[in-house]
Nucleic acid binder design. Structure first.
Lengths: 145, 145
DNA sequence: ATAAATGCAAAAAATTTGCAGCCGT
DNA sequence: ACGGCTGCAAATTTTTTGCATTTAT
């Protein structure tokens, strides 16, 4: 298996003012290469190979979030996941309510923030949104038949 | 302070096949009367007055979710909340990124499931979605000035 | 009567913190 | 050399589970 050819994790780390350590490089590569958000459990497991402690992983993830490199989200109950977002446009997800499979999709809605702000009493300006879909994936639909 | 005049918690419980116990009645009323999702910590605290243990609250909440009476969601990191949904249409939320205030808003998007399904490879049919907005509420905008 | 619901205690899981030492810059 | 980063251990917080007992139907 090959690493992404064009992604330069050390550069991203340096640009964000971080040191280039083995854990953070690996963590960033794993996150960048994933086609969908990865749960903490997976990130902790994958970084065990460089001897990383879960506490360090949590700390690195928080640091990444602060710099806007990754995003934290919880699509499934009691399952926090992280997703690489730097430079990427807005991404949404579809979650399988049967097996938990997650697919990322791009989906653009114009003026949605303004429309939402118009409905709101307490907010004048809305800056972000998250949109997630739920359904049963083809594999699980087949399994039920 | 008066309880909602028309909401009959015992009836909802019975219809769902549950027993009508003090805790579950109170819990359901609290959830029903709230204009926004309530975090577990709040629900546990509010039900302490009938001597409820947090384990019992968790169990009741899970039971409610299974019957489709309430919905579980986590709008803020590491903060699981529950919201009454029985009979209500789709509700969305706006979260203040500064103080965490949550406002519920109604917001309808036609054909959004079909549009999303069209973008997806792994899903043919999408059944649900969640849409949450983030911004800074008027109070916090004022505070920063 | 009987099955569901509860309280209590204990366990398990998830996340955070303190601190001394290591390592990138 | 400095400060960020790390490992390790311990503390917190959140959620779940087992079990004997109570309670609604």
């Amino acid at each position: 298996m090959k690493k992404s050819a064009s992604f330069d994790a050390p550069e991203v780390l340096q640009d964000a003012g971080f040191k280039v350590t083995p854990l953070r490089v690996l963590l960033l590569e794993v996150l960048h290469d994933a086609p969908k958000p990865l749960p903490v459990s997976v990130l902790v497991r994958k970084t065990k190979r460089v001897g990383a402690d879960s506490a360090t992983v949590y700390r690195a993830l928080s640091a990444f979030v602060e710099k806007g490199i990754v995003k934290c989200l919880s699509l499934e109950k009691d399952k926090t996941s992280y997703e690489y977002i730097l430079g990427k446009g807005h991404v949404h997800h579809v979650v399988c309510d049967s097996c938990g499979t997650i697919e990322s999709i791009s989906f653009c809605m114009r003026n949605i923030h303004a429309s939402a702000a118009a409905k709101s009493k307490q907010f004048k300006l809305i800056k972000e949104h998250s949109l997630e879909f739920f359904g049963t994936c083809r594999k699980c639909v087949r399994a039920v038949r």
